[in-house]
């Protein structure tokens, strides 16, 4: 939710507009100053705090519940076992699972994964496409009332997402879409004001020369959109798509409201449930951490591939 009002910058432009380094004049062959060493120490401590929970997820997921319950503080997995992952993927029989500290309740991980993939993919594709269409109309087409209508769209940035959830649930219920994937996807399918705002910034900067050449050749404005504007804005479109995908994948409150059965359950909601089904013996920590890791994995992979793009997309230059 926080990302919705900040306007990312494209990596390419960031590279160019970076002001020259402000670092102190280089003093070669001298040991770094104590202040600098201290700064690095603080930075490394902060990094360790940032990354430790990820490692701990992995370490716990590869441990066995029996060993965890003995209270070992070993930094390595204790009583190494794939059991946690096996329970998540439903590879253990109920008896086996209970014997290893699981709840034994069946969880259909693949179904939740499929649901999450469907929701995030469809929402991202539709939302970005429709937002791009609107952004095109607001940046490259000439029509009366363009600025006024755009201002109305910007107004919706002020409506906190949280306020629309309850009435939107009522609407989804009126439409008979409770507990369906479509019900989960529908409110996000059409646009977000942020995506329109973001894409408009880039569409406005696409050079008019190519467009005019195409128009002289008799191309329609529709063709200009598909054949010129979209291909020339692949970068920003990819950026907003990744951000939308991550946001949609991680959403919890809205799918929690709409879905009631496995049919429409997405991973985040399933994780919450997995946690709630605590076995008599105590929480199945190994299984739970395996589940959180598996749920986070697609985003971690996406991040590994697109880290540079995502990192550079967070900035302010679009807002000024």
């Amino acid at each position: 939710m926080t990302e919705t009002t900040t306007a990312p910058v494209e990596p390419e432009t960031v590279g160019q507009t970076d002001p020259p380094r402000t670092a102190q004049p280089r003093r070669r062959r001298r040991p770094p100053s104590p202040g600098r060493v201290l700064a690095w120490v603080v930075m490394i401590v902060l990094l360790l705090l940032t990354l430790f929970p990820f490692y701990w997820m992995l370490r716990t997921a590869l441990s066995s519940n029996g060993a965890l319950y003995s209270g070992s503080t070993s930094l390595l997995p204790v009583g190494f076992s794939w059991g946690g992952f096996e329970r998540v993927f439903g590879l253990q029989s109920t008896e086996e699972a209970i014997a290893q500290g699981g709840s034994g309740a069946s969880i259909d991980f693949w179904l939740y994964l499929r649901n999450s993939v469907v929701v995030a993919t469809v929402v991202t594709a539709c939302q970005v496409f429709f937002s791009a269409m609107a952004a095109y109309a607001f940046s490259r087409l000439r029509w009366r009332g363009r600025n006024a209508v755009f201002a109305v769209f910007l107004l919706s940035l002020m409506v906190p997402a949280i306020f629309t959830l309850l009435p939107n649930f009522v609407l989804i219920r009126d439409l008979g879409l409770v507990d369906t994937l479509l019900g989960i996807m529908l409110p996000g399918l059409f646009m977000t004001p942020f995506a329109i705002f973001f894409l408009r910034q880039f569409f406005m900067n696409v050079s008019t020369e190519v467009e005019e050449a195409a128009l002289i050749d008799g191309a329609s404005k529709v063709r200009v959109f598909f054949a010129i504007i979209i291909p020339m804005s692949v970068g920003p479109i990819a950026t907003i798509s990744i951000l939308t995908y991550i946001g949609s994948w991680n959403d919890y409150f809205w799918p929690l409201m709409v879905s009631y059965t496995d049919e429409s359950r997405v991973l985040t909601v399933a994780l919450g449930n997995f946690n709630a089904q605590t076995p008599q013996t105590g929480p199945d920590w190994a299984g739970l951490m395996a589940a959180t890791l598996v749920a986070a994995l697609p985003m971690i992979l996406l991040f590994l591939v697109f880290a540079k793009r995502i990192v550079n997309s967070i900035g302010f230059s679009g807002i000024k």
């Binding site: 929970p53 701990w56 991550i246 985040t268 994780l271 919450g272 996406l302």
Partner: peptide, 18 residues
């Protein structure tokens, strides 16, 4: 910068459970 941003990639639910 990527390492610093990493926690933002996981959902609130995952962060809370960890």
């Amino acid at each position: 910068r990527s390492l610093v941003l990493a926690p933002y990639l996981v959902s609130n639910v995952v962060a809370a459970l960890v």
